[in-house]
């Protein structure tokens, strides 16, 4: 089990970086690639996932551009890439059964693997490191609660 921290009621794995606005985690994978999945706050705000679709392997995406789409509550929206790069793998099982992303968001429910073009250059957009991550994640949860996005 990876180091996991309970932050304001959400389980946050500390062994990876996060894009807190896009609600995605980023973890080094094989070779130069990173694996990307949805963080628990993203799952909470999306609602029950009914459909997922990811860009084809070989697709090049810029940071902030969609690498896929997600449907929950009959609401279709983009999944924006936290890094620029090329998609090298996508999780077909998650597309076929999006429920695994809710059951195991940090493991079997990953979305895509991407080879970043400039990981070091874009890393400042990600939040990582125990103290920084826990504080930033807690601040995001608090902000959402203030806005009434999450239940108290």
């Amino acid at each position: 089990m990876s180091d996991e921290h309970n932050v304001r009621g959400f389980k946050v794995r500390l062994d990876r970086a996060y894009h807190l606005d896009f609600h995605l985690w980023v973890q080094s994978s094989e070779g130069d690639s990173v694996r990307i999945g949805m963080d628990p706050l993203g799952l909470e705000t999306s609602g029950t996932l009914s459909q997922l679709e990811f860009a084809a392997v070989g697709t090049i995406v810029a940071r902030g551009e969609p690498f896929g789409t997600l449907e929950a509550e009959k609401f279709v929206g983009p999944i924006r890439s936290p890094l620029s790069g090329m998609i090298v793998a996508s999780n077909a099982e998650a597309m076929a059964s999006p429920g695994i992303c809710e059951r195991d968001p940090y493991g079997e429910g990953w979305f895509v693997e991407l080879t970043p073009f400039d990981f070091d250059g874009e890393r400042d957009q990600l939040t990582e490191g125990t103290v920084t991550l826990v504080a930033a994640f807690a601040a995001k949860v608090d902000d959402y609660r203030r806005q009434g996005v999450l239940a108290e």
């Binding site: 705000t45 999306s46 609602g47 929950a72 509550e73 609401f75 959402y144 009434g148 996005v149 999450l150």
Partner: peptide, 9 residues
Amino acid sequence: IPAARHRAL
């Protein structure tokens, strides 16, 4: 609109 879909809807 609210960030949570059910609230937005």
